[in-house]
Design a protein around this nucleic acid. Structure first.
Length: 562
DNA sequence: GCCGTTTTCGGCCCGACTGTTTTCAGTCG
C-alpha cells in the first residue's frame, strides 16, 4: 500500500536524479510525465496497480509500472536506490533551493565537491561560486538569500502538516488514563498560518505526575522536565511543550497565558498574579478588556481602529454556500466538472462557479476560445440534467500590463471572473501594484485571486503595496480572495483588518484541483476568523439571489435566477 | 522511458524569464 503522493514524489525524485546524472532527457521527461499522469488519476492507486489497470494508462509504460508496482508492494524502489548510490543524503536538501535545478547541483557536486547546504553556504560566503562557469554574482547572492530563508523555514510546518502532528499528539494523550483533560494552546489555538511549535495544557492530579511521566516515556522521547513543563523536541515534526496543571483554575489561567502572543499579552499589561480568573471572560474583565477570540489574540488586533470590527467571527464552514474558483480536467484539475460539483454539493454547497485557468496559463492547459465554448456546452448539459446552479467562471491571468488575457467579447461571456497573477513576478513594487489595480478596475473582475502570490515557506509575495490594492478593491467592488490552500492562505490575515475597514468583501476559495481539495476551504475559514470576518462580508455566504445581484453590480450578466 | 506506426525504431519536446553568455542553458509555473 502506498499513498498517491508518495508515488508522485518517487517518480519526481527519480527524474531529478536522472537529470543530475545527465541521462537521456526524454527518459527524464518520461518520469516527470509519469508523475503528472499519476497526479491526475482520481482512482485508488493501489487498486490500479493490483488490477494491472495502471499499465493501460497513457504515459505509464512497462518501466514506470514496474517502479510503481515495486514501491506499492515493498515500500521502496530499487531504481531510486541505485540512482542514489554515491550521493550523500545531505545533498538532497540543496534540491529545495529555488533557482538550483539538478544540472546546476550536479555541476556544484562534481566540480566543486559541494555536498550539503552548509558547504554551499560556505562556498557562497567565500565568493567561490561567482567564478564557476554558468554561475555569477547574482546567482551566488540569490542562493545565499534562499539558504537564509531555508534556515528559517526549517523551523516551521504548514498548517495541514502541523494538523497531522497535532492528531498524533491527541492519540498519544487520549491513551494516557491519568490525564483528566487537555487542550491545545499557543499557535494551534491561535490558528497561525505556519507553525513552529505545538503546545498543550494538560490537567492531572498532582500526585500522578510521576505516573504521567512514565507513561509518556514509554511512547515519546522526553528532552526536558521543568517545573510544570514537559518538552519533547524530536518525537514529532515540531517541538512539543506540555504544561502540566493540577486544578481547573490553573488550567484556565495557563491556557490563557499561553494562548495570546507575547505582544498581545504585553499590550493588555497581563500578569498572572493580578488577573487570575475562573474563566477567560473573567480574566479579560479584570484587565478591563473586551473578550477577544483565541484566534485573534495577536499584536495586530490592536491595529483595528473601528470597535465593531474587534468582534469575534461567527463564520463557520457550513455557512459557505457558493463554491467558486475550482479547477477541472478542462485545465489542470484532476476531476471533471460533474465530479467536482457533485462532491461539493454533497458537502453542502448550493451554487457553483467553475474557474479553470485561462489561455496564458499554458502549463496548466488554460482554455482557448474554442475550449471555452466546449466547456460552456458541457455546463449547459450538466445544469439541465441535474438542475444545478452552476456558472461558467474563469481564473483569468493578469498580464504584465494589467489586462486580463481575453478580449472583452470573451470576458463578457463568463458569468464570474477571478483575476490572478501567475507570471512575471519580479516587477518593481510600483509596477506590480499598478498592474494589479488595472486588473481590479476591469469591469469584468469579480474577485482578486491570491492577492500577494506568496507560497508559504517557499516563495515570498511579489513586491506590491497591499493597502493601495485593497483600496482599489473597495472602490471597484471587487471581492478579495482568501485562498484557502495551505500553501497560500492568501490574503494574509494581517491585512484583513485594513480591508474590512475599507468595507471590502471577501471570497473564501479552496482553489480546489481535485475532489479531496474541496475540504481545504476550512483553512480559509480559520484565516477569515482570525481577521474577525463575519458571514455577511463573504460572497460565498450570500444567498444565490444576492450572489447574482453581486455579479450584476457592474456589468449585466446572463444568469438564470433559479 | 513512452508511444505508435505506412509497427520494433525514431521521435518525443511549453514558453517566458533570468543570468549567464555572446547565442544559450537552466529553471519554473
Amino acid at each position: 500500500m502506498a499513498e498517491k503522493k508518495e508515488i508522485i514524489t518517487l517518480l519526481d525524485e527519480i527524474a531529478d536524479l536522472l537529470e543530475f546524472r545527465s541521462e537521456n532527457p526524454f527518459k527524464i521527461s518520461a518520469f516527470r510525465n509519469g508523475a503528472n499522469t499519476i497526479r491526475k488519476i482520481s482512482e485508488d492507486i493501489n487498486e490500479l496497480v493490483n488490477s494491472g489497470k495502471l499499465k493501460e494508462v497513457k504515459g505509464i509504460g512497462k518501466g514506470i509500472y514496474t517502479v510503481v508496482e515495486e514501491y506499492c508492494s515493498h515500500g521502496f524502489s530499487t531504481a531510486l536506490e541505485e540512482l542514489k548510490i554515491d550521493i550523500p543524503d545531505s545533498l538532497f536538501e540543496i534540491f529545495q533551493i529555488r533557482g538550483l535545478g539538478p544540472k546546476k547541483i550536479a555541476q556544484l557536486f562534481n566540480q566543486e565537491n559541494i555536498r550539503s547546504v552548509e558547504e554551499l553556504k560556505t562556498a557562497c560566503t567565500d565568493n567561490r561560486l561567482s567564478s564557476v562557469k554558468g554561475f555569477g554574482e547574482k546567482i551566488q547572492k540569490k542562493i545565499l538569500d534562499e539558504i537564509k530563508q531555508l534556515e528559517v523555514n526549517r523551523n516551521f510546518l504548514l498548517i495541514h502538516f502541523a494538523e497531522r502532528e497535532a492528531e498524533k499528539i491527541k492519540d498519544l494523550l487520549s491513551g494516557i488514563s491519568v490525564i483528566k483533560k487537555y487542550e491545545f494552546t499557543g499557535e494551534v489555538r491561535r490558528t497561525r498560518e505556519v507553525f513552529s511549535s505545538l503546545e498543550v495544557v494538560v490537567l492531572i492530579e498532582a500526585y500522578k505526575t510521576e505516573e504521567l511521566i512514565s507513561a509518556l516515556k514509554d511512547k515519546i522521547i522526553i528532552d526536558e522536565i521543568d517545573e510544570g513543563t514537559i518538552k519533547s523536541n524530536s518525537t514529532f515534526n515540531l517541538p512539543l511543550t506540555m504544561y502540566i496543571v493540577h486544578s481547573e483554575n490553573h488550567f484556565i489561567n495557563r491556557l490563557f497565558e499561553t494562548t495570546g502572543s507575547k505582544e498581545f499579552l504585553r499590550h493588555l499589561n497581563y500578569s498572572h498574579e493580578k488577573h487570575d480568573g475562573n474563566s477567560e471572560e473573567e480574566i479579560f474583565d479584570k484587565m478591563n478588556s473586551i473578550k477577544v477570540a483565541p484566534e485573534m489574540r495577536e499584536e495586530e488586533f490592536f491595529s483595528i481602529t473601528k470597535a465593531e470590527l474587534k468582534k469575534s467571527s461567527n463564520l463557520t464552514g457550513e455557512q459557505l454556500k457558493g463554491f467558486f474558483h475550482f479547477h477541472t480536467t478542462y485545465s489542470d484539475g484532476m476531476n471533471s466538472i460533474e465530479e467536482m460539483v457533485s462532491a461539493a454539493k454533497n458537502l453542502g454547497y448550493d451554487y457553483f462557479a467553475v474557474c479553470d485557468h485561462s489561455k496564458t496559463a499554458a502549463y496548466a492547459n488554460g482554455l482557448s476560445a474554442q475550449r471555452i465554448l466546449q466547456q460552456k456546452n458541457e455546463i449547459e448539459e450538466i445544469t439541465s440534467k441535474h438542475n444545478w446552479k452552476l456558472l461558467q467562471g474563469i481564473e483569468s491571468d493578469i498580464l504584465t500590463n494589467g489586462d486580463l488575457d481575453y478580449p472583452t467579447e470573451i470576458l463578457q461571456a463568463f458569468q464570474f471572473v477571478v483575476a490572478s497573477v501567475h507570471s512575471n513576478f519580479s516587477l518593481s513594487e510600483d509596477d506590480m501594484t499598478k498592474r494589479i489595480i488595472r486588473a481590479i478596475e476591469n469591469p469584468f473582475t469579480d474577485v482578486l485571486g491570491h492577492p500577494t502570490g506568496r507560497l508559504l515557506l517557499h516563495r515570498a509575495p511579489y513586491k506590491h503595496t497591499i493597502k493601495k490594492i485593497i483600496d482599489a478593491c473597495s472602490r471597484n467592488k471587487v471581492a478579495i480572495e482568501i485562498n484557502a490552500h495551505p500553501n497560500r492562505l492568501d490574503l494574509d490575515w494581517r491585512n484583513i483588518f485594513y480591508a474590512r475597514e475599507q468595507g471590502c468583501l471577501f471570497s473564501i476559495n479552496a482553489d480546489a484541483h481535485s475532489i479531496e481539495n474541496i475540504l481545504l476551504a476550512r483553512y480559509g475559514i480559520t484565516v477569515a476568523r482570525k481577521g474577525g470576518i463575519q458571514p455577511e462580508e463573504v460572497i460565498n455566504c450570500f444567498s444565490y439571489k444576492d450572489f447574482i445581484k453581486f455579479l450584476n453590480r457592474k456589468v449585466t450578466r446572463k444568469v438564470e435566477d433559479k
